[in-house]
Design a protein around this nucleic acid. Structure first.
Lengths: 158, 158
DNA sequence: GGCTTGCTTGGAGTGCACTCCAACTCGTTA
DNA sequence: TAACGAGTTGGAGTGCACTCCAAGCAAGCC
């Protein structure tokens, strides 16, 4: 009869959990604040601040009061990091998190918030691609002028 | 013998010039600050501030000291708007503008600045597209739960 | 003349998202 | 036992990009 593999075999490093936050997150408090800071790219200051304003639930403490983050905390941080990347203001992230705390009855509102944000992201991508075209054009202009300084004068003013 | 068409026929509205800043820009000072604000989406406050910090060259004045922006000013504003869209800090825009004032000998440096910025924009687009995938996934998750509330519990924590 | 509208100025204020500080505690190493 | 490094706290400070304010001026209209 096969014995169950010890749970510890499933434990992934802080960075691994943060960068691939998949599956059911473990709730064991085991990551120090500096590990989480290194994994997430946030500073320890910012992690404490996120907790203070309520973006993170109160983090478990080791003896002596030091924070120990769980994989579930890392999952949330990873998702918040994604939202932050889209330029979502902290206030909106907070709204999302507070809805999540209220359970199932906010599913629709949360979905709507994400749908709205997706639309904004799509718009941002379109804007950036248009900008990319302008940059390409300008770069070509400069490159051409540098290669052969006999073309028509290119604008100095922009 | 055909007469030359009057120059006025070429004059485009402030919004038109701003949104399609092509060709050799006219230098006639003719747009009021509120026209430029409407066209650019910046406030009159911000336009004055851009001028004060040197992002715009000193703008021509009508009798009584009121600003009158030229098409060349609009061209620069349009390009600055693009750079701003990429998240470029004002300080970097200022560096670019100050190099432009120094003429041809800064071509290579300006080109390099744009190349660097292009790379950042490409990276941003890639990040946003990855985020889009995460948003799609989450939205599907919520939608599925809403449609049939009998699946496995989805995470409340994120 | 008086009112309104649009513009002018320098300097101060705002909102956001951190970011740092001083003083302290705790567990570990020398 | 003493030092060290990592962590703790509340509150204050920073940097950016605006944003607003008060006071005033000039032109157009009733």
């Amino acid at each position: 009869m096969a014995t169950l593999a010890p749970v510890e075999l499933d434990l992934r490093s802080c960075t691994e959990v943060y960068s691939r936050p998949v599956g059911d997150p473990d709730r064991t408090p085991r990551h120090t604040i500096s590990e989480v800071a290194a994994a997430s790219g946030l500073t320890a200051h910012t992690l404490r601040w996120y907790e203070r304003i309520g973006l993170l639930d109160p983090v478990d403490r080791a003896a002596g009061g030091q924070r120990r983050y769980s994989d579930a905390d890392l999952h949330r941080l990873a998702f918040l990091g994604r939202l932050r990347l889209t330029g979502m203001p902290v206030a909106d992230m907070l709204r999302y998190v507070e809805m999540a705390r209220q359970g199932e009855r906010t599913f629709e509102a949360r979905r709507q918030l994400l749908v709205d944000q997706r639309e904004e992201v799509r718009q941002r991508i379109a804007d950036l691609q248009a900008t990319l075209a302008v940059l390409d054009y300008k770069i070509d202009l400069y490159a051409g002028r540098i290669a052969a300084a006999d073309g028509p004068a290119i604008c100095h003013h922009d």
